[in-house]
Design a protein around this nucleic acid. Structure first.
Lengths: 199, 199
DNA sequence: TGAGTATCTTAACGGCGTCAAGATTGGAGA
DNA sequence: TCTCCAATCTTGACGCCGTTAAGATACTCA
């Protein structure tokens, strides 16, 4: 990538995504502002509109990138495991790990109202691929069962709900402010994945 | 409550909360605007500031009211059950039922960044009482165990994470857009609460 | 009845997302 | 190498937002 003049930034689109995530990390996604982002990126207020139609489209690009990264994390972490069940656990850990290590990405990803124009309309590329990977991982734990088997459906639902619920409640604060918070993430993940009977 | 003149609304505080929740229900919490709320309530732009210091305080009042309602729902639904375990399931159902039947309340409640000034600072009155009720319900399922017993901690964590994760993923859309959505809420809750081994 | 307080309005400020119009630049084709 | 076009960026503006100061109105209670 060549260095350009002062007038033409050269790779503003990339810079907007990265600096935007920094900004979200500092002040939260609801206080995230296009004008401040432009200022920090060293361009004018209107410059971002040559790379994204509006603010929602920038957030959508962030979310899509995050979902892709999470999918790659799924593959990387499950590839190292031997059994289907271990691969499923690895995926669950990868979900939570991503949420905690790439919190600004996850914050945008888990707010579809920010970047999905309407209900169901353009819901593709928003994590459905990740959901399918989870579903496949569960299916391979029960090779003799159909994909619509209640056991599979229940396990998929439970795994999804667990990793998502834990991630949200951890990064938003509730878990950390209660007695559970003292146990730390690692211990809580062990508890979560070993619970024999659900509440 | 007497009817007042046109100039003095009479019960503006209450009207702002209720009309505000209507507005949130229609356009989402991120598009919720004080100015539009004032217009719909038939008062001037500055009128709400005589009842709430700012927008965050209005949202905080909504959230506090929602948490109180959810707590009452917990008590009402668990009182009808015989065994501790049945009471715990009833509380779990009550959590999800509240999120689905009072979605605008739940949307505000589950966005502590909107009404909590800083991290941990004023986190009281934001659902910790509800968490304590859940914890008590779990503790009574294991009368011979200490409150810090790992089994109890795990069950509390799992129950919380399940009901919260399911509620979020349902009202935000993801679950409904996948194959799981076809099963409906009732069926999914049965699957969730019966899963013998977690994902 | 009159004073004081609670409540509401008007008008303004700066910041926001967005857009139209114009300036600058990089690069493809002569 | 020159020319011109498309891509990129800036300036300046619009309407809407949250918030506040100053003043108007109405209820309350002595």
């Amino acid at each position: 990538m060549e260095k350009h003049s002062d007038y033409h930034h050269g790779s503003l689109r990339r810079a907007l995504i990265e600096t935007g995530l920094e900004l979200i990390s500092e002040k939260g996604v609801s206080a995230f502002t296009l004008r401040e982002l432009a200022k920090r990126a060293g361009v004018s207020t209107a410059a971002p509109y040559h790379h994204f139609r509006n603010k929602a489209e920038l957030l959508e690009a962030m979310a899509a990138e995050g979902w892709r990264m999470m999918g790659e994390g799924f593959e990387a972490s499950s590839a190292a495991e031997e059994t289907p069940m271990e691969r499923l656990y690895a995926i669950g850990r990868a979900y939570i790990t991503f949420a905690l290590e790439h919190t600004p990405y996850f914050r945008v990803m888990s707010r579809p109202d920010l970047y999905c124009t309407e209900e169901e309309s353009d819901y593709s590329g928003t994590g459905l691929e990740v959901f399918e990977m989870l579903k496949s991982a569960v299916t391979e734990c029960y090779p003799d069962r159909d994909r619509s088997d209640p056991v599979i459906q229940a396990t998929v639902l439970n795994a999804w709900v667990q990793v998502h619920g834990f991630s949200m409640l951890w990064i938003d604060g509730p878990i950390r402010t209660t007695s559970l918070g003292k146990l730390g993430v690692e211990e809580l993940m062990k508890l979560l994945f070993k619970t024999p009977v659900t509440g």
